[in-house]
Design a binder for these strands. Structure first.
Lengths: 199, 199
DNA sequence: GTCTATAAGAAGATAGAC
DNA sequence: GTCTATCTTCTTATAGAC
């Protein structure tokens, strides 16, 4: 296997294990074992654990950008785009119940470790925040677009946290419905979504 | 120092370190060092790390019960009692920005570790959930009291998660104000808080 | 009840053979 | 590029002196 491919495999496996078990609880041996590499060879590709973390965050940033791009392509309606974001709580609910939100739990762990990569992990949030904010601007909410974006991010984080704690599927569905109702209320129904800006 | 007092000191220090740095990242040596004990003597009081975790969770449950009891004593108005809960986001915001919510982050970590004590940690949430639910019942919302309690818990978790990520004080204050407005809307203002139940 | 000393294992990380 | 062997450090945990 080429070095490039092996490196990619390591990042994919590390990404999953960091999500499922946390960064600290995942050892080099765990990653090497699942990739099918010896620990010794592992260091040919990554010198330190922090290097793997950086690569994992970079990959997540790239995947998140691609996801947002896909949502942008899939619909011209800002409201439907925002709904795509809300719906991942339903789509990924099994994983969220088991391991929480990949972004929120990583930021929390790195904050507690006072890890240098915490700010990089927060950029995952910033990416979503900026994208959501742009959609709210398109909905005519220039004045408070960022606050609305943060509010929606806040709700998704709260739902993920309680989903992990209680494992309650009905709760997730109810809160997602509530988020969609909230979203609808942000732009009065008597105007078409794209033209609800004051003037 | 008596065994009782030493044990109490260990639990107090472990509680703080588990919160600040996480359960896994906190070693026996860290706790022993801060208490001023040798590692050897440590094992006289606790045989395993899991035993300390159990003691920490038990202490947190006791403190939470005492806090809820104090809020209950401080006011006869369910709405004001619920406000006491919401206000801890303001009171503890410095710690929350640095280390997140003590309950949410512990549950998340134990879920990822697939730790046996996860269900015990969730009981901290259950305690708050049941207490909030009782207050909503007193507000006349028997039918959806538990859903309202979960909704408020969800919001506080979301605010804590984003506070840790962005360290944004204005965001926390804005969302707390929004939670209070939401709370007010749950029981129409034209009726006194304690008598807003349908009949 | 507290200490020192020490075992036993896992972790991150390196050296050098192939 | 991949391996085995090894090193160091950290962490949990125990034994036994005081």
């Amino acid at each position: 296997m080429g070095a490039r491919k092996t490196r990619e495999q390591i990042v994919i496996v590390a990404d999953r294990l960091f999500y499922e078990h946390g960064f600290e609880a995942t050892s080099f041996a765990d990653i090497a074992g699942e990739v099918g590499l010896s620990r010794g060879n592992f260091y040919y590709h990554f010198k330190t654990k922090d290097e793997i973390l950086d690569a994992v965050i970079a990959q997540r940033l790239a995947h998140t950008r691609a996801m947002l791009e896909a949502w942008e392509q899939a619909s011209t309606s800002p409201r439907d785009r925002i709904r795509s974001f809300v719906q991942i709580l339903i789509t990924n609910r099994t994983k969220i119940v088991a391991h929480g939100c990949p972004v929120g739990t990583l930021c929390n762990e790195l904050a507690k470790l006072e890890h240098a990569a915490k700010d990089d992990a927060v950029r995952l949030f910033t990416l979503l925040r900026a994208w959501l904010s742009r959609q709210f601007v398109a909905l005519g909410r220039e004045a408070d677009a960022d606050a609305l974006a943060l509010h929606l991010l806040m709700r998704s984080q709260g739902v993920a946290a309680l989903a992990t704690a209680f494992g309650d599927d009905a709760f997730v569905r109810r809160e997602v419905a509530d988020m969609e109702a909230w979203l609808h209320a942000q732009c009065p129904a008597d105007r078409p979504p794209e033209t609800c800006r004051p003037a």
